[in-house]
Simulated scan of single mutants.
Amino acid sequence: MTSKQTRSMWVWNSVAILASSTETNQLLAGALDAGVTELYFYMAPHYYGPQKPQLQTFISRATTSGLHIWALDGDRAYFPDAAGPSNFYHGIDNLIAYNAAVAPHEQFSGFQADNEPLDHAEYRTFHNGIPDSNLSHTPGTGLWQPTQAQDREMLLCSWLSMHETASQLLHAHGLRFGAAMPWWTEAYEGEELGVSFPADGEGVRRQSVMKHMMGLVDEYVVMSYYTNPAEAARRVEAQAAFASGMAGVGRPRVCAAVEVAPGVGRRVSYGDTEGKNSRAVVLRDVGVIERSLSRYAAFGGVAVHHWSAWQSMPD
């Protein structure tokens, strides 16, 4: 790992961490043992007020240990075909208010959005499994807009507009902004996910949603989950190459990621793959990914998903 790279880890069981000094100790020690310096710490919009004293203590200890804490939030319901983004923005407002009320060593250093547009539960307007070129343009085929094609187009536009608003809010208060992104934006059913953004702009260029998103974030984390490190690295190459071609000022860091939670799928998660289910193997493969992608100027490191699964993993 070079000096420009970091290792990061998602933490979803944040309430349990904040409620227990033992859990906090284990997280801080485990993160440092794995070479992790960035934690994406789940914060529902309503957590900031009730959890404020515990957050101050936790972030202060983490800062002393050399860790940077990012608030993390995301939900399929934040898209406008569902409940809409207002609660997503409310969480960001609460993060900004929390940071303004505490000392610098108790502050979050950034915010990561984990919003993914795929069909989930009652939300069905992405039309899973259909490439862009096969989406129907016949009126009446859409579930949210008039056609299937418009369903996806507007869903992708809303994905970008949510991030654009979040970026403006966070940057106005000196906070970094990151996004967890699926690897397949460049190869969904064999095609890139293209979109014209903003939807009502003049002379708007239609291009991959990834290329639009790169201009909105400081850190672009690709969920490149695969237990063959060469394949995991390959899933980040298009993103890292594109970002590396951007101007140095405003260029986002592009990170890869590995999955260790059980129940996700063989070859996808180290927790489900025979011969791969150990921390030592994961860290070895993380090193392979880091070396493979280090040729890209924008490459920023590897993230591990997620802490509680890592904690339960054999050494």
Rank of each mutant, 00 (worst) to 15 (best):
P104M: 03
Q145W: 08
P198W: 11
R205K: 14
S20F: 07
G49N: 11
G301A: 07
A82G: 05
P252V: 07
M1N: 10
A113Q: 14
A16N: 10
A34Y: 10
Y270E: 06
G74T: 00
A149W: 15
G203K: 06
I17M: 12
G30Y: 14
L55C: 08
G201I: 00
Y225W: 15
W159E: 04
G300R: 04
W310K: 11
D33E: 15
K211T: 11
D151K: 12
H46T: 08
L156S: 03
T37M: 01
F111H: 15
Y98I: 01
W70C: 02
G271K: 07
L28Q: 10
G271V: 05
V221F: 01
E191H: 02
S21E: 14
L293M: 11
G178A: 14
H171P: 05
G194N: 15
V195H: 01
P198N: 13
D75K: 11
M181T: 05
Y78R: 08
W307I: 07
I289A: 06
H90P: 00
A298M: 09
S292E: 11
A97V: 06
T125F: 00
R76Q: 06
N115S: 05
E153I: 05
R266D: 13
R176F: 04
G30W: 13
V15N: 13
A121T: 08
V282G: 12
A121K: 13
F58P: 04
V236I: 13
G194M: 13
